[in-house]
Write a protein that binds this DNA or RNA. Structure first.
Length: 200
DNA sequence: AACATGATGATCT
DNA sequence: GATCATCATGTTC
C-alpha cells in the first residue's frame, strides 16, 4: 500500500539551521526505488553552523561541500571514514554553508528492502546511525545537491504525527566545538543512536 | 594526520 | 542489554 506523501515545501522549513534540526525530528524521509517506497521517521539530527569548527563549510567552499551552501532543503552527501555515506539537509539561504546531519530514522515502510540493503534482519539497526541510515535508504553521492523539497527519488515529507518530546545534547563523534548543544533526538525512542547518557 | 562510523568481541549486569 | 576497546577504510586538508 502506497500512501500519497506530499513533499515539505521549502517555505515550511525554518530558515535558522538549528531550528531546522529540531523541526526535522518526527518528519519523514521518503525514498522511491523502482519497485518500492522506503519511508522512515527522522528521530535524530545534528546542526552544523557558520563559525562552527566541526562544520564541513568552516573553512571555505570546496568541490565536496558546495551543496552545504545551497538554499535550505537540498541534500549534502559525503563519504565518511572511507566507507559510509552521510546525508545532510542544507540550511540557511543560498551562499551560507550550514546543514543538518540526519543521524537516525525509525523504519516505517519498505523495511524488507532496507533489510536487504543493510544485510541484517534487525529492524532496530536498519537506520540507527548516519552510515546505516544512508545504506538502508540506498543513498550515495549521486544524491548530493538533490532538492529534498520536490517529489523525486528522495524527499522530505510528514504525516502529522509527532514524537514524544525532543531532547538536546552535544554532537556525536566530533572533536572541534564538541561542547555545543546541537544534537536533537526523539525522547524514549529506541531507533536513536548514541550512548545512553546522551539520550536521557 | 585527521575524520560528523560501524561491526565485532570482551566483560560486565 | 550496556559499555568499552579495537580497527578497517579512503577522502580531505
Amino acid at each position: 500500500m502506497t500512501v500519497a506523501l506530499r513533499p515539505l515545501a521549502r517555505g515550511e522549513l525554518p530558515e535558522d539551521t538549528t531550528e531546522l534540526a529540531r523541526f526535522l525530528i518526527g518528519k519523514l524521509l521518503a525514498r522511491d526505488l523502482a519497485d518500492a517506497r522506503l519511508v522512515g521517521r527522522i528521530v535524530e539530527t545534528e546542526a552544523y553552523l557558520t563559525g562552527d569548527a566541526a562544520c564541513h563549510a568552516y573553512r571555505r567552499m570546496t568541490e565536496r561541500n558546495r551543496s552545504l551552501f545551497r538554499e535550505r532543503g537540498h541534500a549534502y552527501v559525503y563519504r565518511s571514514y572511507g566507507l559510509f555515506w552521510m546525508l545532510n539537509v542544507s540550511g540557511g539561504p543560498e551562499g551560507v554553508g550550514t546543514g543538518v546531519l540526519i543521524r537516525a530514522a525509525e523504519p516505517l515502510a519498505g523495511t524488507e528492502h532496507m533489510k536487504q540493503l543493510r544485510g541484517t534482519e534487525l529492524i532496530r539497526d536498519l537506520a540507527r546511525g548516519p552510515g546505516r541510515l544512508a545504506a538502508a535508504f540506498a543513498i550515495d553521492r549521486g544524491f548530493d545537491g538533490a532538492d529534498l523539497c520536490r517529489e523525486g527519488p528522495l524527499f522530505l515529507t510528514a504525516d502529522g504525527h509527532d514524537v514524544d518530546g525532543i531532547g538536546v545534547s552535544t554532537r556525536i563523534g566530533i572533536t572541534r566545538d564538541a561542547h555545543l548543544p546541537l544534537r536533537f533526538y526523539a525522547k524514549r525512542n529506541r531507533f536513536v543512536s548514541g550512548p545512553t547518557r546522551l539520550n536521557a
